[in-house]
């Protein structure tokens, strides 16, 4: 059942919530359970762990924050590492906002929409939104992402108290959910040669630049190089089949 243009907003919101609860929300929620345990390891209160999920809303940034404090990194180094790891949100948000644009949309609405941009909402949004009537997209997207965020906040809270009590294999499995789910979302959402190539090159270049480029610039360089190659090759294929 696809969202119709004449639905009331409540029904659209319910569709978004159901889509999130069908799997993605649980995925992110379980993925952020690990954050709770990392926050507890550095002696920060549970409120900070849960707030990090709501305010930062980016698994890798949260991992870097708590793991770096545990390792004794300088505050400036922590902020710079997080800024570089989060640079991906610039192209991601620029890519998804046009799908959510409505005439007369205010700056406040756009800032709220942008805050929800993280891997799940982004990958699922690019996949699902084009099939949804433009007037319904904003409500659907917010309902979908807010459901993911609520489940994740509960997961972070639970992880703060529970993760240390879990068997090692299970705790490791929870921490590995983020990379496994990121990759699955990317591949499931890829539509053409360009997307596939971008994924493959990103995977291949990251370990290489990790080795040869220091100072936290490695991810940006591998993303720019891999993405640009994928774009050029994909563009040529489309232009001259």
């Amino acid at each position: 059942m696809t969202v119709q243009a004449d639905w009331r907003w409540q029904r659209v919101a319910l569709a978004g919530m159901r889509a999130a609860l069908s799997f993605p929300a649980w995925m992110v929620g379980f993925g952020l359970v690990g954050i709770g345990s990392l926050a507890r390891d550095v002696g920060y209160p549970v409120e900070v762990a849960v707030l990090s999920t709501i305010l930062v809303w980016a698994g890798p940034s949260q991992v870097i924050f708590f793991a770096s404090i545990a390792a004794g990194a300088a505050w400036s180094a922590i902020a710079i590492a997080i800024a570089f790891a989060s640079l991906r949100f610039l192209p991601m948000t620029v890519a998804i906002l046009p799908l959510l644009r409505k005439p007369g949309q205010g700056l406040g609405t756009q800032l709220i929409l942008a805050h929800y941009v993280a891997v799940t909402g982004w990958a699922e949004g690019l996949r699902r939104l084009p099939a949804i009537p433009p007037v319904q997209r904003v409500v659907y997207f917010i309902a979908f992402c807010q459901t993911c965020m609520t489940v994740s906040a509960i997961g972070t809270f639970a992880g703060y108290y529970l993760l240390g009590a879990l068997p090692v294999a299970l705790a490791a499995g929870l921490l590995c959910l983020t990379p496994i789910f990121f990759l699955t979302s990317l591949v499931a959402g890829s539509r053409d040669l360009r997307d596939g190539l971008a994924i493959a090159l990103g995977l291949a270049f990251a370990p290489i630049s990790d080795r040869f480029i220091g100072g936290g610039f490695d991810l940006i360089v591998s993303g720019l190089v891999g993405g640009t190659i994928a774009f050029v090759v994909g563009h040529r294929r489309v232009a001259r089949p």
Partner: peptide, 29 residues
């Protein structure tokens, strides 16, 4: 925008690779 999307995709794939090479916490076991 097509280029921007390709860079975002490659960057995310890079994050995946990095989390696997340099695992956080107990995943290192």
């Amino acid at each position: 925008l097509d280029w921007v999307r390709a860079v975002a995709t490659a960057l995310l794939a890079g994050v995946v690779a990095k989390l696997i090479i340099a695992p956080p916490g107990v995943l290192g076991v």
